[in-house]
Nucleic acid binder design. Structure first.
Length: 552
RNA sequence: UGGGGAGUCGCCAAGUGGUAAGGCAACGGGUUUUGAUCCCGUCAUUCGUAGGUUCGAUCCCUACCUCCUCAGCCA
């Protein structure tokens, strides 16, 4: 896929201005996931933004895990995230960073804040703290602990760290302003006591810093120039700045927020995706119906296609709900150029060729525009499979495919006429008896035009295969729009159809994650988990071909 | 009804004082041994609404409307 020029957006404008003014001579961004779930298409947007910016401006982009909540984080998630970022085609600057690498420094800065009288230990219960916080329209009030001396706070905080208090018994709070109209500034908690095993630091700590406190300092420690996050953090920015303004640190990154991606007919909420996995609505995080990066990968989406999708949707601050068509269009465009063509029949109808004698096979290109993809032989036989959908006894208006008495071109082979329909006792069509025009191999018939082209397989040569046909996971465009209705009510019962069919022998030895276009059916990809080259062929339908017929 | 944001074509999205880019989708037409691809064409006198400033406003000002977001010892 030819990479298109970058699209202008407000963040690029800011960077351009920062570079032009000399505020920065280069940029450093970061992608900061919490290892508490698998990455999804929304993260892909963020990854493409952060890593893409670094690449475009010859800057750097760090991968940093925001691992400050040991109760939800795991090594499995951390590993999958690294795999996903790499698979998407990006490499981070230097080693993987972990917020937990900064725990000592973070602790020291907390001590500095306490010493300056800018942080205090509070022993209000969570319920009391909520009451003291006030509401959206009412100012909060000061905690009785707010005026503790720095010396006492220093002592208490050290004892918190040393494990002298129970989990949740005390917290460290920034002393800002309980009457601030911005609730984030009403003395936010910056450290809590939690005896939980941390994936990196084990049991070394029983106090853990909060996100708001950790993130800005981590950014500053890494020399991040532009700290890009999603809109819900907009009103955390004053706190981000407050922390950096009140500790002794030479760097002050600026935070910019963009709107998160919403994709029609799916969800992009880690919590809800976890629910789908836990409640077994899908096979796992990498179920091909999932909007996770690993799910999209298993389905057959390409990194290039996903990156193109990110480019097409752009970056802004307005709410957006993107059509699936944009994602599918980007994927199709990439696959169109790179996937070899081959034939498969997923809903077979048997055809006997009554005048087979003398018929022969034919070579065919793997790609109509790329002869360099090579050729293979498309065998012919006296027994064929065609797609049941390609035959109609009573064709609708405009039908170009096979019908009784009608002719059709067999792709890469002969023109064939249907002479007889074979039905079972119930009247269901079970087979066709057809004849070919021997003069039409590699040339058009004389004196008439045959419009329709259908794909087929020689029954004697075809290989059995499993096809997993995927459809949208939900029945409505915005399954989580209604707070009153659980999104699981909108799960599409037909999102997965598994069928047994046939495929050209040319794909026999395809390794897992091999992509093909099955002509007229769509793009397919051998399954990463279940496909076995030469043994068990399992194809996932990545996306159908655009179809201007069945839509009518 | 406190604070912070957003409103430009069906879906995204540039433009931000000089008279509305682009993509996707859609719709016509051409090519085609994939109803695919490809090619050509059509698709906002109008930028949430109402006023105002200006020779001129999507862009500046005022008011209003709508939507999103914040009251975790989550991130």
């Amino acid at each position: 896929m030819s990479s298109q020029p970058p699209v202008s957006n407000f963040i690029r404008s800011i960077i351009d201005a920062d570079l032009a003014s000399g505020k920065h001579t280069g940029i450093v961004t970061r992608f900061p996931p919490e290892p508490n779930g698998y990455l999804h298409v929304g993260h892909a947007k963020s990854i493409c933004l952060n890593f893409g910016l670094a690449a475009d401006y010859q800057g750097k982009c760090n991968l940093r895990f925001d691992d400050t909540n040991p109760e939800k984080e795991s090594e499995e998630y951390a590993q999958s995230i690294q795999d996903d970022v790499r698979w998407l085609g990006f490499e981070w600057n230097g080693p993987v960073r972990w917020a937990s690498d900064y725990f000592d420094t973070l602790y020291d800065f907390a001590v500095e804040l306490i010493s300056k009288g800018l942080a205090y230990v509070d022993d209000l219960t969570p319920e009391q703290m909520r009451e003291y916080r006030g509401t959206l329209t009412q100012a909060g009030k000061n905690s009785p602990s707010r005026d503790r001396s720095a010396a006492e706070n220093l002592d208490l905080f050290a004892r918190m760290k040393n494990g002298e208090f129970a989990d949740g018994a005390m917290v460290l709070r920034a002393k800002i302003d309980m009457t601030s109209p911005n609730i984030n500034m009403r003395d936010p908690v910056i450290y809590r006591i939690r005896r939980a095993h941390h994936i990196r630091t084990g049991d070394a700590w029983c106090i853990y810093p909060m996100y708001d406190y950790t993130h800005c300092i981590s950014d500053a420690l890494e020399g991040i120039t532009h700290s890009i996050c999603t809109l819900e953090f907009e009103d955390h920015r004053p706190l981000y700045d407050w922390v950096l303004d009140h500790i002794t640190i030479p760097c002050h990154p600026r935070q910019y927020e963009f709107s998160r991606l919403e994709l029609h007919y799916t969800i992009t909420s880690k919590r809800k995706l976890l629910q789908l996995v836990n409640e077994k609505h899908v096979g796992g995080w990498d179920d091909p119906r999932m909007p996770t990066i690993s799910g999209m990968r298993r389905r057959g989406y390409t990194p290039e296609g996903i990156r193109e999708f990110a480019r097409r949707i752009g970056v802004s601050k307005s709410e957006n709900s993107v059509d699936m068509a944009i994602l599918e269009g980007a994927i199709r465009e990439d696959l169109e150029a790179r996937a070899p063509r081959v034939m498969a029949v997923i809903n077979p109808l048997k055809v006997s060729i009554t005048n087979f004698d003398g018929a022969s096979e034919r070579e065919a290109d793997f790609h109509p525009q790329h002869p360099e993809f090579g050729k293979r032989v498309v065998p012919f036989g006296h027994e064929l499979f065609i797609e049941a959908d390609d035959f109609a006894e009573v064709p609708p208006p405009g039908w170009k495919r096979l019908t009784l008495g009608g002719e059709v071109r067999l792709r890469h082979s002969y023109v064939m006429r249907c002479d007889e329909v074979v039905k079972d006792a119930a009247g269901k069509v079970i087979a066709l008896r057809c004849s070919i025009d021997h003069a039409t191999l590699g040339k058009n018939p004389e004196g008439r035009k045959v419009k329709g082209v259908i794909h087929f397989l020689s029954a004697a040569h075809a290989l059995p295969a499993e096809f997993r046909l995927y459809d949208r996971l939900f029945t409505v465009a915005e399954p989580d729009a209604d707070r009153e209705v659980d999104f699981c009510n909108y799960l599409n019962a037909g999102s997965l159809t598994v069928v047994q069919g046939w495929v050209e022998a040319a794909v026999r030895d395809a390794v897992p994650e091999t992509r093909y276009q099955f002509e007229r059916l769509g793009y397919f990809c051998t399954d990463r988990r279940d496909h076995q080259a030469g043994k068990k062929l399992v194809f996932n339908r990545t996306v159908t071909l655009k179809d201007s017929w069945t839509r009518e």
